[in-house]
Amino acid sequence: MAVNISSFTAWITIERARCPIYALKNTSPRDATCWIPSQEGKKFSVNWSNQYRDRPIYARLSIDGVVCSTHFMLDAWNYPHDSNAIGISYATTSDFTRRDFVFSAIQVTDDDAYLYTLDSPPAFGTIRLELWEADIEQVVQAPFQHRYGGEVLEGQVIHEMSKKAGAHQVKFGGEYVVPQATVNMVNGSRKGSAPLATFTFNYRPFDILLAGGIIPRPTQPKARVPGIKSEAVDDQIQDLEAQLASLRAQKRGSEGGSSSSRQKLKTHWGCDPRTGKAVQVIDLTDL
């Protein structure tokens, strides 16, 4: 499932499967927020697209309050062969290395040294993508060059009494080597006083979202006789009701006098107006 703002669309994939969204809310024409169920130990990707690419866009991705990626999507007029969709699943750590985004359990402790986390817990549980209009100064095809000095998402520890206990955080996974890619190295800056679109994906474990009413509970299906379809059950009920009525009528007839004075039951076939099916009708008017 995806979230749309104007010509922009954003969604989360977990292990390459698109993640469902819940409680979608547009807080303004340029802001949308929703909830997603996180999965411990699973890698994920933040994806977005621009349907028209009518102007260059500067994108900033923040996870748990840490800026994990900044990049540009160039306009279709000057760069018609570029893609109109981008997926971000990792943070770069050098020209040749990366670390993937991974949902992880929050570590808890009963150590009083961490009591401060009760009042000021870390900013767990939020993935935010901001899309700004951009001013482009220069675009050069060149080998990728990493910019050092960014923050890193590592495991956090909080006190066990924290309201965040039981929730998830995002960590950078293990570092791995990739070939140095040739990319568009863009010199530019964001433009304007506010983003064109802001997507906020709040994440928690499935059980927490279910308990909090964010994910609706499934309705209980009606009980059925194993191995028998409901239509067959209805037919059996009608047949048994007809037999019961016949037996009751016969009993009343046998109790009404001798065989010479009794009147025979009159039966004929008719149509049940509820179901349209043929049923046997017993005429009791003369009994």
Rank of each mutant, 00 (worst) to 15 (best):
S7F: 02
T9H: 02
I21G: 05
A23G: 10
N26L: 01
R30Y: 01
D31L: 01
A32Y: 01
T33G: 00
C34D: 01
S38L: 02
G41D: 05
S49N: 10
N50Q: 11
R53E: 04
R53F: 02
R53P: 00
P56S: 04
A59Q: 07
R60N: 11
S62R: 14
D64E: 15
F72K: 10
Y79K: 01
N84D: 13
I86F: 05
Y90F: 06
S94M: 11
D95N: 15
D100Q: 07
D100F: 04
A105Q: 14
I106N: 11
T109Q: 09
P121C: 06
E130Y: 01
E133V: 00
Q138T: 11
A142D: 10
R147M: 10
A165T: 13
G166W: 02
A167E: 14
Q169I: 03
F172P: 00
G174D: 13
R190C: 06
S193Y: 08
L196C: 08
A197W: 03
A197L: 00
F201C: 07
Y203G: 08
R204V: 04
P205Q: 05
F206W: 13
P218H: 05
T219Y: 07
K222S: 15
K229Y: 04
S230L: 09
V233G: 00
D234Q: 13
D239W: 10
Q243H: 04
A245D: 15
S254K: 12
G257I: 05
L265T: 03
T267M: 14
D272Q: 07
R274L: 14
R274Y: 08
G276Q: 07
D286N: 15
D286A: 14
